[in-house]
């Protein structure tokens, strides 16, 4: 597990176009943080542009969003971009010799929504769980806001961090599981203030004020005193989002919100939450939801990253046959 940059992946030929973004392009579109990789297994470096015919004619609006591979070490020329809040590097998870996650790279910038798209068992949930260290990766690393998650590096070895340190790191990560796992003995409001009052050092009064505002924003202010058991499934997701957002995380990980919320509502909520700043990674099986919500899409299949890039490109004009097949299968299945 060396941290060296593999030679040949430095996208020097693309730097000039990316360095001069058109002034009115939104921040989320100026970057292309998720590496492009072919569906085939060979780890040879890719030439940018080969898989994205859409970007080949130099369209003035599209130049700044050209898909390009990101090297492991961000070159100096890219320093004007915000640093990724989440960076997964060759993430691999093996359960009893079965590879659930195979060598996945991912980067998410602040304010960006990244949709993990793939069928059941593609490794979406495992990737999210690795990104908050509820699952220890078998190989590979995750950085959250620049700090290595769950480990510290001693020489060339990784030592696991103590539970206390991991807990401190998790405070900057929001996680909404599927199903949302609310605290059943606590009211909605109590669920939302649990993090700030018990983990953060917010006073109860402030936490209640913040939580009430957050519930308002998520459209569930009326449910503050209800218990999770009495809520509709969709509202539980909203409460779980509020509980995660109450910690003001740098990264928000959301597992399958569109399975319980109507896709347009879920997309609107997440887009709204992203404006507050966190980078959002959302897992879904619904390509239409992905198209609504995501700046960046990463298509997973059987544990490996099939294709990633600007959501519109990946979802409407996939560069790989395998991506197209996965998307077709996902569109076919009833939801």
């Amino acid at each position: 597990m060396s941290d060296q940059t593999p030679t040949g992946e430095n996208p020097a030929d693309q730097t000039s176009t990316s360095q001069t973004p058109t002034s009115q392009t939104p921040a989320s579109e100026t970057t292309q943080p998720v590496p492009q990789r072919p569906a085939t297994q060979q780890p040879e470096p890719q030439r940018p542009g080969t898989h994205q015919p859409a970007t080949q004619p130099p369209d003035p609006h599209e130049t700044s969003v050209t898909t390009r591979p990101i090297s492991r070490v961000v070159p100096q020329e890219f320093r004007h971009e915000p640093d990724p809040v989440l960076r997964a590097d060759r993430l691999t998870k093996t359960y009893r010799r079965r590879r659930v996650l195979d060598d996945v790279d991912l980067q998410v910038l602040p304010g960006q929504v990244c949709c993990l798209l793939g069928p059941a068992g593609a490794g979406k949930t495992t990737l999210l769980r690795c990104a908050i260290h509820l699952e220890q990766p078998s190989r590979g690393r995750v950085w959250i806001d620049g700090s290595l998650l769950g480990y510290r590096q001693v020489g060339s070895k990784l030592r696991p961090l103590s539970a206390r340190h991991v807990a401190a790191q998790r405070r900057t990560i929001g996680f909404v599981a599927d199903p949302p796992a609310l605290f059943g003995t606590k009211t909605v409001l109590a669920n939302v203030i649990e993090g700030p009052t018990q983990v953060g050092n917010t006073t109860k009064r402030t936490a209640i004020a913040d939580a009430t505002a957050l519930l308002e924003r998520l459209g569930i202010a009326a449910l503050a005193d209800a218990y999770p058991a009495d809520l509709a499934d969709a509202d539980r997701v909203r409460v779980a989002l509020a509980r995660a957002m109450a910690m003001e995380p740098k990264v928000l990980l959301v597992d399958e919100p569109a399975a319980r919320l109507p896709a347009p509502a879920a997309a609107e909520l997440l887009r709204d939450l992203a404006t507050t700043g966190p980078g959002i990674v959302v897992a879904s099986r619904d390509p239409d939801f992905a198209l609504r919500v995501a700046d960046v899409a990463a298509v997973l299949d059987a544990g490996s990253l099939v294709e990633s890039g600007k959501a519109r490109d990946v979802l409407t004009e996939p560069a790989h046959k395998r991506t197209a097949a996965v998307l077709a299968a996902l569109r076919e299945q009833p939801r």
Partner: peptide, 9 residues
């Protein structure tokens, strides 16, 4: 796990 995810020890 939800409690751990909030950052509890």
């Amino acid at each position: 796990e939800a409690a751990l995810a909030l950052g509890m020890t």
